[in-house]
Design a protein around this nucleic acid. Structure first.
Lengths: 251, 251
DNA sequence: CGCTTACTTGAGTCTGGTCAAACGGGGTGG
DNA sequence: CCACCCCGTTTGACCAGACTCAAGTAAGCG
């Protein structure tokens, strides 16, 4: 596993935050931008496979994803792994550790990533001086909770095929929202092992389920990852509806 | 199903909030108490089986549990149910709906419950005037996220027996913390159907797994629910450790 | 060219699901 | 007071979805 991490002082200014151009994200006021700019400590640039945060450690930072894909997971002592969610641009990670001390999960990059780094000790200041931003942080935490509820429903109660369809549809929907699926050839950069560890299935059975879904013409698999061919049919198969309100806070 | 709901103007004053006597909860300042007292809208008293909040609805309130047990769940269109977590005294419910509009899950009572009712529209005021309380709200949301991660790990990666052991140990731990297990004869007031819907198993297989765990002498089952005989062994079997820091915020 | 990583596929096994039936306690109406 | 019913639990028989083991392929890389 090649792991490379670069700490850049400041490549992106908050005033020209790459997230702001996306219209699902709410705009920040001048004043909020100024504060965020002080809150920001730098940037973290990492390769695919690198660990952003590790279970059991105390990290003095929290991050907002600016570019790239990653996933959040937990391990059992014997090595069994459960991926609990995926992270994408606009997602805040490390909040748990920030509030409660030690990290209870790890985060790993699925592609090269750039993250915006904040000092966790400044959180209280944020809550004091910028109630709206504090509200946004809570909003973001609440959204994560919502996604976890969905994932739990899926792993607990859907069949293998439905689970897979849900996972792909869900990740595709989120990725599209933040502009990760712009190009025609875009794929979700995961391996079948990732899928298995997300769905709670074995690798072999995951492979067979993926074949089935591919034969139905809803997805295709390449070395790079998963290509989504028919998001609507996937949603239907999963008995799931993407909610298309949108405009959410970030940072 | 007998459903009874009573809205009492004010039986418990915030100044003598029954949660404050528990030492795991942090104490509020005079000023915070005064604010909470204004924030509070009344109390909701309901029977076992009654629905506190329903998926798909917009509810103008959020609640903190004062007494009793409940559970949070989601449904698939065909009726399959997944219980995502249990709620106990000190838990805040309805925050998601409060921030994001419609409820994405339902909450049902497992015993008679008393809930402290707040107006969701006042949330912004809370964030403006009481940053510490706002921070606490976020802390609480973050804790819920943490529990969901654990539950997901369990449903996704543990065997049926480990899952059951984890569930019982986890619920027992939480219940003990908030004083629900005071008496020798205390049971967790759930049916095997609840267990099945939490673990993602069928009722029949859940029953057989419960028998196995009971034969090992770790639990016993009665009409009233589940009695915990050996919490340590349960934790061990589940490869799980309760974290014993404690002192958390509430409301 | 050999090695590694990721995907595939088949065979055999077992965990967990479905179907069906029965039991026991508590509540209810005759 | 008794018969009946309902709910939750229990058990057995049988089936299927998912797991393990094993082997083989294909692409990428040093």
């Amino acid at each position: 596993m090649t792991v490379q991490a670069t700490y850049a002082e400041r490549t992106y200014l908050c005033e020209t935050c790459p997230l702001m151009v996306r219209k699902i994200f709410r705009n920040l006021s001048e004043e909020e931008l100024a504060f965020m700019s002080r809150f920001k400590r730098g940037e973290l640039t990492i390769d695919r496979g690198a660990t952003v945060l590790a279970e059991g450690t105390k990290n003095p930072h929290l991050y907002t994803v600016l570019f790239g894909w990653g996933f959040r997971y937990k391990l059992l002592p014997d090595g069994r792994r459960q991926i609990v969610n995926y992270v994408m641009p606009g997602d805040l990670i490390g909040l748990q550790g920030s509030l409660m001390g030690e990290m209870q999960h790890s985060v790993e990059a699925l592609s090269p990533m750039v993250l915006c780094m904040f000092e966790r000790s400044k959180m209280l200041t944020l809550f004091h001086d910028h109630p709206e931003l504090a509200y946004d942080v809570t909003w973001i935490a609440s959204r994560e909770e919502c996604m976890l509820d969905e994932n739990l429903l899926s792993v607990g109660r859907r069949t293998a095929l439905e689970r897979l369809a849900y996972l792909i549809a869900f990740v595709f929907e989120r990725a599209t929202d933040v502009g990760l699926m712009k190009e025609k050839a875009s794929v979700i950069p995961i391996t079948q092992q990732h899928v298995a560890d997300t769905l709670g299935l074995s690798l072999v059975h995951t492979n067979k389920t993926i074949r089935k879904l591919a034969n139905l013409g809803l997805i295709s698999w390449s070395e790079k990852g998963c290509k989504v061919l028919d998001p609507e049919k996937l949603q239907e198969l999963a008995h799931w509806e993407a909610d298309s309100d949108k405009v959410r806070p970030f940072i």
